[in-house]
Computed example of a mutant assay.
Amino acid sequence: MVRVTAIVICAALAGCQAVPGEGPLASAINEDAGRSPADIGRVNAAVFDIVDVDNHTARLVSDYVSTALKRRFGIGGGPGRAVIGIGDQLKVTIFEAGADGLFSTSEQKQTPIEIVVQPDGTAAIPYVGTVRFAGRTLEEARQQILSSLKSKAVEPDVIIAMGDTPSRSVTVAGAVNRSAQISLNLSGEQITDVIAKAGGPTSQPYESYVTVVRGKRTGTALLKSIVENPSENIYVQPGDQIFVSKDPRTFTLLGAVKSNSRIDFGANDLNLLEAVALGRGGNDETVNAKGFFLFRYEDPEVVVGLLGKRRFDELTRKGMQADKEGRYPIVYRFDMSHPDSMLVGQTFPVKSRDVIYASRHPAVDLTKFLRVVGAPVGIAVQGAAISNNLSD
């Protein structure tokens, strides 16, 4: 009887690949890792690699701080020079020491002049003429006016004060309590400053994304990351457009689990064990405890840190491609049969749009196949048991 069972199993191991199932077996995922489309036999197959989740991997991934705005998009830097721009309203006050000067009388030693910077960047000042203001600081403009008056006025002095400054404003819109154009102060303001001036976000930071449009460059980051990572809380620049959008972070749980679904984080952070638990865990009758996989597009710095530069270059030569945000496909393999997985899983962070897949045990397909071909119940049970031992 054992010989008959063994013969049936040998035939079934190849045939059971055609049995319907919920996604690939762990062995199929492992075999495709690191292979080129030509090796796999599919022209447009995605090239990826597998990384085992252990203490080192979990620590590297959790410690990595994404710098989407500052590094990836080149948007950042300090507050920059506060300069006058087109459309700005200025109050120029000219003082004279003499009683009967160009700008003074016996009763008043000063004359205030309100101007608006014209589209060509200039404005006219009496007895000075046309003055270029756009692109200059208040002090630079003051010195130019003062220089022009020294031969005309009696011991002149000048003070320039800013009024409305449309050239030094940013637009904040989207999921904020009050969309508005925000005028920047002279010391410079950061993303969180202008969002606060717009009434703050309408949703929690962990589900609010901030997009900064500056010229032809665009960068998006999670508000939670901006708050937690000061280097991401960049200084905004005049003319920036800032859009806040609500996008609840979700992950997808598939395979031999009790609930295949797309699930909201519903929390500030989420680890791998918590994510599996949100789907009510693996199906005890079908899941392969050694075959939990997390599919993700990861930042290149993390991929290189996990695989090494040589392996990364090898995979790119084979056809591994980045997505539109410059991230590369990686698959994390998690073995739930090890006791320390309960510790490692608590430190491995889940990210938005991750796909967690629990592969079914090979015995499931073998049992299906034996039943399809009409094998006696006893042989089917023995076949499943032998398959289970072989997989270990």
Results as ranks from 00 to 15, higher is better:
residue 134 A to E: 13
residue 173 A to I: 08
residue 186 L to M: 07
residue 179 S to K: 02
residue 134 A to I: 04
residue 159 I to L: 15
residue 135 G to I: 06
residue 189 E to F: 00
residue 170 V to Q: 00
residue 137 T to P: 09
residue 174 G to T: 02
residue 175 A to C: 07
residue 146 L to D: 06
residue 141 A to S: 15
residue 136 R to E: 09
residue 136 R to P: 01
residue 150 K to F: 08
residue 172 V to R: 03
residue 143 Q to K: 14
residue 187 S to P: 03
residue 142 R to S: 15
residue 177 N to P: 03
residue 162 M to Y: 13
residue 143 Q to R: 15
residue 178 R to L: 00
residue 150 K to L: 13
residue 169 S to L: 00
residue 185 N to G: 13
residue 189 E to R: 12
residue 169 S to K: 00
residue 167 S to A: 15
residue 153 A to L: 06
residue 159 I to K: 14
residue 185 N to I: 06
residue 160 I to L: 04
residue 163 G to S: 08
residue 180 A to F: 01
residue 178 R to M: 06
residue 186 L to T: 10
residue 192 T to V: 13
residue 166 P to M: 06
residue 180 A to G: 02
residue 158 V to M: 09
residue 137 T to N: 12
residue 145 I to A: 06
residue 187 S to G: 09
residue 151 S to R: 10
residue 143 Q to T: 12
residue 191 I to D: 00
residue 147 S to Q: 13
residue 146 L to H: 08
residue 178 R to F: 03
residue 147 S to E: 10
residue 159 I to A: 14
residue 163 G to M: 01
residue 176 V to M: 05
residue 136 R to F: 10
residue 146 L to V: 00
residue 149 L to N: 08
residue 166 P to A: 10
residue 189 E to C: 00
residue 186 L to Y: 06
residue 167 S to Q: 06
residue 157 D to R: 08
residue 144 Q to D: 15
residue 166 P to F: 08
residue 185 N to L: 02
residue 190 Q to R: 15
residue 181 Q to D: 12
residue 137 T to V: 05
residue 147 S to A: 13
residue 179 S to M: 01
residue 152 K to F: 07
residue 146 L to R: 02
residue 156 P to K: 07
residue 186 L to C: 03
residue 181 Q to E: 10
residue 173 A to D: 03
residue 143 Q to H: 15
residue 154 V to N: 09
residue 147 S to M: 06
residue 141 A to R: 11
residue 182 I to F: 08
residue 179 S to G: 02
residue 141 A to N: 05
residue 150 K to Y: 10
